[in-house]
Simulated assay, not measured.
Amino acid sequence: MIYRLFIIFILSTILSCQSDNSIELDTPEESLYFPPINTNNWENIPPTQLNWDLNKLVELKNFLIEENTKSFMVLVNGKIVVEEYYNGHTANDTWQWNSAGKTLVTATTGIAEQNGLIDINNKVSDYIGTGWTSATLEQENLITVKNLLTMTSGLDEVPQLVIKNNLVPLADAGTRWAYGNVFQRLMNVVEDASGTEFESYYNTELGNKIGMVGFWNNGFFYRIYHSNTRSMARFGLLASQNGNWDGEQIINQDFFLDSKTTSQSINPAYGYLWWLNGKSSYMLPSTQTEFTGNLIPNAPADLVAALGKDEQRIYIVPSKNLVIIRMGEATESEDNFALSSFDNVFWEKFNEVIN
């Protein structure tokens, strides 16, 4: 009898331990999701599952509608939490990225480098020939591919038309940060190095690989990317994972990390055509003034953003596995080609939704 009770006690203890262990196991984090390439299927997460404030979400949506927004999309861990279309826009409609598309040029340049076609530390004239600016040969030879990626070419940023007569030096390359359209010469670098039209190279090496559907307009002097909202979100998801798409490293990770890191000592809030929050100071287009503090005070410090005219936006917050897309017409905010007051107001309202 005593022996039988002893056995029961031992078995009960073992089962109790097993039960306790099962309780103590950490709940695995939700794995990152990537939407399929060849279908329009995309998994969703309801906002209630994330404990978002639905009343504040309605307020945010009303704000976006009032601010001439055409589409708004939020991804968490790659899954859609919010996908809204306003003011007659639909999921199938395309819209221009404006300067948010600079980041596509960055990514394509990085791919060309990893494919051995270019070296971003080489001078631009190695690829497109000399005489592409109105600078002296000595000044022109100072301008590297990296200077175009970082907006430090030293060339006059005021003329929007990128032609030789407008590419006048105001300072030596690397000594002045100024936001302008000369970055477009990166497309010529990729074209001449690859022997392929930029759009074709981009589609083959990047867009098609992650299921993007879009086009570059055919302007010779200035090319702008157009796509639907989900394509913009796909690129945002790729960027949030430093160039990795569902296990495939589309773009060299080190290059992408460099892209989203301060790229020069003049404007801490700028990487390779990406804007960076959480820095001690920042500069803006059309001015040489240095402003103290965060680029977007209400946004998370680790925010990385593609900012385009008329508030075309890709916001990426790595600490929250968050990607946010906004497409639309110009808001009521005062626009500065990139940043505007819209950004800080948006983040004030979005924080109320998720906190």
Rank of each mutant, 00 (worst) to 15 (best):
L167T: 00
E352R: 12
N355K: 10
Q139M: 06
I266M: 05
I7G: 06
I118Y: 04
R176V: 00
N244A: 13
S259Y: 05
D246R: 02
N355P: 07
K320W: 13
N165E: 13
D172Q: 12
E83C: 03
D119E: 14
L117Y: 03
A112G: 07
S19T: 13
S134L: 07
P36D: 15
N122F: 11
D335A: 14
L5C: 06
Q249I: 09
S259L: 05
S194H: 07
F34L: 09
W216S: 07
Y315A: 08
P28T: 15
Y202L: 07
P46I: 06
L32S: 04
D156H: 03
D192F: 07
T144R: 02
S125V: 14
W97H: 08
S31I: 14
P169Q: 07
R185S: 13
T39A: 11
G78M: 04
A171W: 05
L5E: 11
N242Y: 15
L161P: 08
D20I: 09
T261Q: 01
F34H: 07
N92T: 15
Q184P: 02
L25E: 13
N228F: 01
I118H: 06
S153M: 01
K102V: 00
S194V: 03
G247Q: 10
D20C: 12
R4W: 09
E84Y: 01
G110H: 04
I80V: 11
L167V: 06
Q139W: 00
E157Y: 04
T289K: 14
D119W: 04
E66D: 14
E352H: 12
D126L: 11
L148S: 09
Q241C: 07
L257R: 09
E30K: 10
S340W: 00
L5R: 15
I316E: 00
I120R: 04
L303M: 11
T103A: 02
F198G: 08
W275C: 06
T150V: 07
F337M: 13
S31Y: 13
E191M: 06
Y85K: 09
I111A: 01
I65F: 03
I354T: 09
I314L: 06
P159C: 04
G293N: 04
G214H: 05
L64E: 03
I10Y: 15
Q18H: 11
F350Q: 05
V213K: 14
E66T: 11
F215H: 12
E311Q: 12
L142F: 03
N242A: 15
W347V: 05
M151F: 02
I251V: 12
A299Y: 02
N277R: 01
V190L: 04
N165I: 12
R313W: 12
L167K: 00
I65G: 04
W347R: 01
G131Q: 03
L117W: 01
N217F: 03
Q96C: 11
I210S: 02
E205T: 12
L339F: 05
D310W: 03
N87D: 14
E352I: 03
L15F: 13
L339H: 02
I314K: 00
N122D: 11
N298Q: 14
Y222D: 15
L237M: 09
V323K: 00
D302G: 12
F255P: 00
E329H: 08
D126I: 05
E329T: 08
F337Y: 12
N218Q: 14
A100R: 02
I128Q: 08
L339I: 10
T136F: 02
